[in-house]
Structure formats: structure tokens, C-alpha cells
């Protein structure tokens, strides 16, 4: 089986969120970059678990980005990816990214394509669905559990107010979230092996992006907390009812 795992570079979850260039660019100075948590913890690790269960499996990692995404690609290889592809382009928007991945995916027969639920920076959650449409494949969004079942897969997905179990034949695109796998850390052997694993750089196909970020902004700061004494819980309830009017 051949699995393609899509990974994106995002700022570390503790990064300070600030903007430069007249609020049109994310302030990158001093920011640590990580593999988007959904892509690493759930998509990639689940792919590695599938490979451990069936050694005939190969895992390809793909990331659309300039050379500065290579450290996170190496990390993904250290965790257990076999080969990587970097599409050498600025990931302009989800549509552009999906079109680049679709182009690569068309050249190889992947049985399974995993994405994360969304990136923690732009929170679009769109690449997986777009990719599935471009490749005319079924798409299971927000998966929390994934099992192979012969040529079929059994997947649990989030629905409004619960979960649903579904079955579908391969190939399929799946977006992954919590529940899919338990997080793990790369070991020394993996890190050493990653250095010599193939990382192919391909040039992008011409695609026009359809959206553009015009400006960023920060939400207004909170006015400050109103503290109520622990002996006066009724006062808190009164404030929530009469002042804030939320209960």
C-alpha cells in the first residue's frame, strides 16, 4: 500500500502572534516552526502505525513550500516517512496547495492520502476536501479512528453531536484529528536514517490562487477580570444574570 501524507509548516503553539508590514505579514522573527500538530500527531503517526502493521506499505511525505520547510520534512522522515516531495512554491492559499498536491498525486498510485484536520495558523481545513475533488475521490473529513479492512477502510468521523462509522473502498482522502493515533517522538536511529532518505524537489504547476489575505488584526484586549469572593458565589451568579446577561 502507498500512503501520501500532506504536511504543513506552522508556528509553534506558544509563538507570539504579531504582524509586520502594515499588518499584512505574520511576524516570523524568533518563531519556532513545527509540523502542523494534526499532520504530525494524527496523519503521519497513523500512517506509520499502518506501515508497522503491514511492512509492504510505503509512506511519501509532501509539503508545498520554499526550502525553509525542509527541516520539518526531515523530521517527518525521522519519525518514519520513507520518501519526501517538496513542491517549491509559496503556499498561496488552500486551492493553490491542493492543486499542487493533486498534480503530484496523479503521477503515482496512492491508495490513501492523509491530511490534518486544519493548519493551526490559517485554520482553513480545506486542502483535503479540495484535493479529493480534484482527484475525484471520496473524502472523509475529521476522522478520529481509522482501520484497514481488506481493500476497504473503516473510519470513524465526527458528525454534529457525535461520531459515525463509515466504510469505503480505497483509494480515499482522509483528514485526521485527535483519536487517530497516539503521539510519538523521533528516536536517534530515525534521525540518522532521515538524513539519507530521498527528498525530491519539484517545481509547481501554474495555478492561480483564488483568495488573498488583505490584512491581519488582533482582537481587542479584555477589560480585566472582575473577581468575586469565594464566600459570595451567589454574587457571581447574579452578575452573570443581571450584568453580563448570559444566563
Amino acid at each position: 500500500m502507498k500512503i501520501l501524507v500532506c504536511i504543513s509548516k506552522t508556528p509553534d503553539t506558544t509563538a507570539k502572534i504579531a504582524f509586520t508590514d502594515n499588518n499584512t505579514k505574520f511576524a516570523e522573527a524568533g518563531v519556532q516552526w513545527i509540523i502542523n500538530p494534526y499532520d504530525e500527531w494524527y496523519a503521519l503517526v497513523r500512517a506509520i502505525e499502518l506501515k508497522e502493521a503491514d511492512t509492504a506499505t510505503t509512506i511519501h511525505i509532501i509539503s508545498v513550500g520554499s526550502a525553509d520547510v525542509e527541516p520539518i520534512i526531515r523530521k517527518a522522515l525521522a519519525l518514519g516517512g520513507d520518501e519526501a516531495i517538496r513542491v517549491n512554491a509559496n503556499p498561496a492559499d488552500s486551492y493553490f496547495v491542493a492543486a499542487q498536491i493533486a498534480e503530484v498525486a496523479r503521477q503515482d498510485a496512492y491508495d490513501l492520502i492523509f491530511t490534518g484536520k486544519e493548519t493551526i495558523d490559517y485554520n482553513n481545513g480545506a486542502v483535503g476536501g479540495m484535493l479529493a475533488e480534484m482527484l475525484d475521490l471520496p473524502y472523509i473529513a475529521l476522522a478520529t479512528n481509522f482501520k484497514m479492512n481488506g481493500g476497504n477502510v473503516t473510519v470513524k468521523r465526527e458528525i454534529e453531536g457525535g461520531e459515525e462509522t463509515v466504510e469505503v473502498a480505497l483509494p480515499v482522502v482522509v483528514s485526521c484529528q485527535k483519536g487517530m493515533a497516539e503521539a510519538r517522538i523521533p528516536n536517534m536511529r530515525g534521525i540518522m536514517a532521515a538524513r539519507t532518505k530521498p527528498l525530491k524537489v519539484v517545481e509547481p504547476v501554474p495555478v492561480e490562487s483564488l483568495t488573498k489575505i488583505a490584512a491581519f488584526g488582533l482582537p481587542p484586549a479584555k477589560a480585566g477580570v472582575k473577581l468575586v469572593s469565594a464566600d459570595n458565589v451567589e454574587e457571581l451568579v447574579r452578575l452573570l444574570h443581571e450584568e453580563a446577561r448570559v444566563i
Binding site: I17, F19, Y122, S209, L210, T211, K212, I213, A214, A215, F216, G217, L218, P219
Partner: peptide, 9 residues
């Protein structure tokens, strides 16, 4: 933690 104004073309 932030918002963005996104234009659709």
C-alpha cells in the same frame, strides 16, 4: 488569536 480580512478574487 487573530483575524484576517481575506479577499476573494
Amino acid at each position: 488569536k487573530a483575524f484576517a480580512n481575506v479577499s476573494v478574487t
